[in-house]
Design a protein around this nucleic acid. Structure first.
Length: 437
DNA sequence: TCTGGGGTCCTAGGACCC
DNA sequence: TCTGGGGTCCTAGGACCC
């Protein structure tokens, strides 16, 4: 048995803690550069503001409907999330923090009335933190997610589900006929793992509701859609196939990417941006005590704008795994120089660290020549990085950074090895649509 | 004028090997 | 002219999540 505890309209709820006057207003929180809506209050949803809606398309609702738009404050949301998660963990023996606003809690061995306990937990989070939540309970994680959706929707759209399922919904407490009724009223697209594409294909095969999917032939759907779909159906039937991950796994890749507030038309600001991205990614890398073996850098124009399009990336292998900011920044900037072409208006860039391994794990032998170059590197690099992280943590991001243009030992290594720095692979595409929920 | 920023997993197909 | 079969590894691309 699992519970899913989920903050309602999380970013909006966080903002409302400090601005209670926003409580009955339609409110949205906007992404970086105030680009698009990434959280919506129920009132904003009722106005028809879609998830990911570009601000300039819904801006008119400011005047006509009193829509309030706020710039995101991710540091604040992260802090509130931590407090919420700590309280939610009291619901059962194990917790998996699934996203900034959701956690699964295993309920094995929990005695008493689960619905009552869940209601108590909701009230506690509301009182202590100020964030409204909904809790779904089911035999599997997929069912707990679904129960959570029902708990939210019963509250937001009265009449669709029995009112007693609002805020807390335990599917295990329903009779077979009640369960069938609830599943028949729920669109198949609400199932965890059914996205836009699968939804369309399922609908085309006559599978409309959660009930339809649950009653489908597992083998036939596996043959057509693969093993992920099979797991989803089994989970809907109450057979747990997806375990709780209470120990967060190390990231397998670490990225830092941004859209620019204004189009960038020259190399220099891109160098600045890419240096910053690589440096932030390096901090994340060290936080999980990993090293990267490859650095990917990409730049692209905006697919939403007319005019010449350009999108290019390059992946550069490192001499050996590294978590050193100067190494990573210089490699990223080198990659940028390899793929940069003038004459375009760039809208976005990013750096990804890939092929990660645990800190301190040596991989393979270096050639004599490489060994000689490696020895030129100062031994205090790791210490330097620790100090860098501590200072930035204490005095704020960007207090201290590594200049990408400085001539350092590592830079000399790259220069000497330039002829061996051919990009291993590059990808290019044109007019790729932005994936959106 | 203005359209987010992260991640994961699975599969197909090519390269290569014996 | 005839040209196997099976295994592994790697990568790109598609689909999903919040």
């Amino acid at each position: 048995m699992y519970a899913l505890v989920d903050g309602n309209n999380f970013y909006v709820s966080c903002e409302r803690i400090f601005r209670p006057s926003l409580n009955a207003c339609p409110v949205i929180v906007l992404s970086n550069n105030d680009g698009c809506a990434i959280a919506r209050s129920n009132e904003a949803k009722a106005l028809g503001v879609a998830m990911g809606a570009p601000w300039f398309k819904v801006q008119h609702l400011q005047e006509s409907a009193g829509l309030v738009a706020l710039s995101a404050n991710f540091t604040l949301y992260g802090d509130i999330s931590q407090r919420m998660m700590t309280i939610a963990s009291g619901l059962g023996p194990k917790q998996e923090i699934y996203s900034i606003d959701e956690s699964f809690v295993e309920l094995r061995g929990v005695r008493g009335n689960l619905i009552q306990r869940a209601h108590t937990m909701r009230e506690r989070i509301l009182q202590w933190i100020g964030v409204p939540t909904c809790i779904g309970i089911g035999a599997t994680k997929t069912l707990a997610k679904l129960a959570n959706h029902i708990a939210k929707t019963a509250e937001r759209k009265p009449g669709l589900y029995p009112m007693e399922l609002a805020q807390v919904c335990n599917l295990e407490s329903l009779s077979a006929s009640e369960l069938k009724d609830v599943f028949q009223r729920t669109d198949v697209s609400e199932v965890w793992g059914v996205g836009r594409r699968l939804n369309a294909q399922l609908k085309a095969s006559g599978i409309e509701s959660v009930w339809d999917l649950r009653e489908s032939s597992t083998s036939a759907l596996r043959a057509r859609f693969g093993v992920v779909m099979e797991r989803t159906i089994r989970e809907l039937q109450g057979h747990a196939c997806i375990d709780l991950e209470d120990v967060p796994a190390h990231k397998k890749e670490i990225a830092c990417t941004r859209s620019f507030g204004q189009a960038v038309v020259s190399l220099e600001p891109l160098v600045q941006a890419v240096s910053e991205f690589a440096s932030r990614a390096a901090e994340k890398l060290r936080r999980q005590h990993s090293q990267a073996s490859q650095v990917l850098v990409f730049i692209r124009t905006s697919p939403f704008r007319s005019g010449p399009q350009y999108s290019q990336s390059v992946t550069l292998p490192l001499l050996r795994p590294s978590a050193d900011t100067s190494t990573l920044v210089q490699t990223a900037v080198l990659g940028l120089r390899l793929i940069y072409q003038g004459g375009f208006s760039f809208a976005k860039a990013g750096v990804m660290l890939m092929d990660l391994s645990d800190e301190g794990v040596e991989q393979g032998e270096l050639s004599l020549e490489d060994e000689r170059l490696e020895q030129a590197k100062p031994a205090h690099c790791a210490q330097l990085m620790q100090t860098l992280d501590r200072l930035n943590q204490r005095y704020g991001r960007g207090t201290l950074s590594v200049a990408s243009s400085g001539i350092t030992t590592q830079h000399k290594i790259w220069s000497m090895r330039q002829e061996r720095l051919t990009p291993r692979y590059t990808t290019a595409w044109a007019d790729m649509p932005i994936a959106r929920a």
